[in-house]
C-alpha cells in the first residue's frame, strides 16, 4: 500500500471535447506501467463514462486513480445535483440527459451500467443537492 501509485485529474465541466483527457491520461500511464491491455481497457472505459457523466450532469469533478498490489481503484467525485434514485439510474436505457447531449451520441442510459460492466466492484454514494462519489475497483 505504501508504494501505491496514484494519479489525480480535474475533470473540466465545460467541454465535451476535452472530456476523455483524464481517461486518456490514465490509459497512457497504465500502459507505461506494463499493465495488461484488457485491464487498461476496462479501467479507461469505466473512467470515461464517469467523466462524461460529470460533464453532463455535475459541471465537472475530480478523478483519483490508485494502482494497488492486486487492483486499480478509481474514485470519481463531483459536487453536482446527486442521483435521486440510484437503482433507476443503474437501469440500462434510463437517462436524464437532454436532447443536445443525445445528439452527440451520449445519453443512451448506458453510462453507469457500463461502469458496472467493466469493473469488479462499484459503489455509488450520492446525496441529492450535494454530489456523488463513485468508487470502482478492477482486480488484476
Amino acid at each position: 500500500m505504501s508504494d501505491a501509485l496514484s494519479f489525480h485529474y480535474d475533470v473540466d465541466g465545460e467541454s465535451f471535447s476535452s472530456a476523455g483527457q483524464a481517461s486518456a491520461g490514465v490509459k497512457k500511464n497504465l500502459r507505461q506501467l506494463g499493465i495488461d491491455p484488457e485491464i487498461i481497457r476496462k479501467v479507461s472505459i469505466a473512467m470515461y463514462e464517469g467523466e462524461i457523466n460529470m460533464v453532463i450532469h455535475a459541471g465537472g469533478g475530480e478523478a483519483d486513480i490508485t494502482v494497488e498490489d492486486n487492483c486499480i481503484v478509481i474514485v470519481l467525485t463531483d459536487r453536482g445535483p446527486g442521483i435521486a434514485d440510484i437503482d433507476k439510474a443503474m437501469e440500462e436505457g434510463y437517462s436524464t440527459a437532454r436532447d443536445n447531449i443525445r445528439a452527440l451520441g451520449f445519453g443512451a442510459g448506458m453510462g453507469l451500467p457500463n461502469m458496472k460492466r467493466y469493473t469488479d466492484e462499484m459503489n455509488i454514494s450520492s446525496v441529492v443537492g450535494e454530489g456523488t462519489t463513485i468508487t470502482m475497483k478492477v482486480f488484476f
Partner: peptide, 24 residues
Amino acid sequence: DLLSWVMGRARAGNAWITIMSNIN
C-alpha cells in the same frame, strides 16, 4: 452510433461503423 453502447458492446480489434463524427 450511441457511444456508450459501442463502449459496452464493441470488442477490442473491431472495425466500428458509425455515422457520428464528433470528436468524442
